[in-house]
Simulated scan of single mutants.
Amino acid sequence: MSGPLASLKVLDFSTLLPGPFASLLLADMGAEVLRIESPVRIDLLRVLPPHDRGVSASHAYLNRNKRSLALDLKQPQALDIVRQLVKDYDIVLEQFRPGVMERLGLGYEALKAINPKLIYVSITGYGQTGPYKDRAGHDINYLALSGVASYTGRRDSGPLPLGVQVADVGGGSLHAVVGLLAAVIARQQSGVGQYLDVSMTDCAFSLHAMAGAAYLACGVEPEMENQVLNGGSFYDYYRSRDGRWWSVGSLEPAFMQQLCTALGRPELAAQGLSLEPERQQALKQALQIEFEKHSFEELCRLFAAVDACVEPVLSLGEALEHPQLKARDLLHQVPREDGSFQAQMACPLKFSAGLPAPRHIGVALGAHSDEVLGELGFSAQRIAQLRGAKVVG
């Protein structure tokens, strides 16, 4: 089984999270991904704890199914190798600050001259233009500047540092994959590639699907706990007697009626129909009182057969054991270099034709350098010379 993207070859210059998550999706769907990594400036993800058998668990996951070529791009011979590779690749994915690849002689215009069909994707915090284009940033900064953090949190404690990197992954990674696949389709018609500028801040800004539309059309400024879906209504989390949490999303009247009936307070359902802040807050307080009458396990039994959009907040370990996630086959055993296996999250996309089995976890820096250079026609002697000159790691 080769996967739907088996015809694509990707040169991946990215590090850390956004670019590697994007190329992970591509590799899981069958694309051939070759990471170009510096042997002198290591990707910090490689040393991020915790480690499994000396390998960062995050690196092992985010870089599975990819090959690694270690090149010092400050060396002219390394740049020549990249130019040779580009002739046979479809996509370049990079995550440097604007201008870095151009200064190396590996910018879009330079590589397009070698391969006019090349699709070149740049993922940055703020994009290739604007006063912030050269500014450093992380996920929390992009969510702050895009306005997302301004109404994601509690009035008394402020914005929430989210456990999942929404701007990095939901913004940069996923939009990069959507954009580059759209460019592949366009290339099928035109025969030429193009450049894709992906700003994680831009992408985070576009996620204001509801609140942003309301503000632009009606001038309604979203604030913490003043929207139906951000804690301004009963749509929220509730604590059980033993300190665990439950999610309540019973927005529709039928679901609200089932929720309140299950809790023994059917008369509360009518309050859910009113959007008046005072009535919503009174309903939240009443629901909290009812949830605190029960332990987590009692609530699990109570809502097991109630279809009311009410679910427990599970730990990651508990989620892995949930029958729904187990039925969806979201775990794979991925081979290590020594032939043993590491448990990893599987690609969540389900194709009727299936996807290829995972080939290996993220490999050691430069694990495929000799192999890749051999494919380019370099002799063993020449490879040894390049390694001795520290062009190749």
Rank of each mutant, 00 (worst) to 15 (best):
P39F: 06
H59V: 03
P348E: 01
S173V: 03
E278Y: 03
Q381F: 10
A204T: 00
S56H: 07
F13V: 09
Y238K: 05
L259R: 07
Q188I: 06
T152C: 14
L365P: 03
G137A: 06
L365F: 02
Y235W: 14
L302D: 02
L299R: 07
L320H: 09
V392C: 12
R64H: 06
A262D: 04
P358Q: 05
G137K: 06
D72T: 01
L25H: 12
L386V: 07
T201N: 05
R103G: 14
D28M: 04
S122I: 06
L273R: 14
Y237G: 01
S157Q: 15
H368F: 02
A319R: 08
A319P: 05
V169G: 08
D12S: 07
L331T: 12
S352N: 13
K133M: 14
I119Q: 03
K284D: 05
G393S: 02
R135A: 04
E311R: 13
G171V: 01
A31R: 03
L355P: 01
A286K: 07
A31M: 03
L314A: 01
Y61D: 00
R187Q: 06
M345Y: 11
G147D: 12
Q75S: 10
L180I: 07
V164G: 11
R155M: 13
V391D: 02
H332Q: 14
A270P: 06
H360P: 04
Q189V: 15
F296Q: 05
D168A: 06
V33G: 07
A22Q: 01
V82T: 06
Q258R: 15
M224P: 03
P323W: 10
G317F: 06
